[in-house]
Deep mutational scan, measured.
Amino acid sequence: TKVFYNGTYVEFNNPEKAKKYAEKVAKKVGGTFTEKNGQFHVE
């Protein structure tokens, strides 16, 4: 499961961990995250 952010991504074996990371990054940058095709995108 990949989490895309700012033109790069971090890959996780565990979708649950990926979601938590996406939430954390989104919170940090004051943005939101969306799930597309089983991957997370932070905006």
Rank of each mutant, 00 (worst) to 15 (best):
T8Y: 13
N6I: 05
K19G: 04
Y5Q: 03
K17G: 09
H41T: 08
A18E: 01
K17H: 13
K20T: 09
K27M: 12
F4D: 00
G7A: 05
K2A: 06
V25K: 07
E11M: 13
G7M: 05
K17V: 13
F4V: 05
K24V: 11
G30L: 06
H41A: 05
G38L: 04
E43M: 14
K24P: 00
Y9M: 09
K24A: 14
N13K: 13
H41F: 15
V25A: 06
A22F: 02
E11R: 10
Q39I: 11
T32A: 07
K28T: 11
Q39A: 14
P15F: 15
V29D: 04
E23T: 08
N6M: 12
E16I: 11
G30Y: 06
G31A: 09
F33I: 15
K20M: 11
A22L: 02
V3R: 00
V10W: 13
K36S: 08
V29R: 06
Y9F: 12
T34M: 10
E23P: 00
G38W: 03
G30A: 06
E11V: 14
K17T: 14
A22Q: 01
K36Q: 09
T34H: 12
K27D: 07
E11K: 11
E11W: 14
V42Q: 01
Y5D: 01
N14E: 09
T8V: 10
V29I: 14
K2T: 05
F12A: 01
N37H: 08
G7E: 05
G30Q: 07
H41P: 00
N14T: 14
P15R: 15
T8E: 08
N6K: 12
F12K: 01
V10M: 10
H41W: 15
G30V: 04
T32V: 11
E16K: 11
V29F: 11
K24F: 15
N13I: 11
V3A: 02
A22V: 03
V3H: 00
A22P: 01
T32M: 09
G31W: 05
V3S: 00
K2H: 05
V42K: 02
V42H: 03
T34K: 10
K20R: 13
Y9W: 12
V29N: 06
K36V: 13
T8R: 13
E35F: 13
K20S: 11
G7R: 06
E43R: 12
N13P: 13
F40I: 08
E23N: 07
T34A: 08
V3I: 03
G7Q: 06
K24G: 09
Y9A: 08
V25S: 04
V29E: 05
E11Y: 12
Y21K: 00
E35V: 12
G38K: 05
K2D: 00
E23A: 12
E43S: 13
G7V: 02
Q39G: 09
K17S: 14
G7H: 07
V42M: 03
N14V: 06
E16A: 11
K2E: 01
A26L: 03
Y21L: 03
E23W: 08
P15A: 12
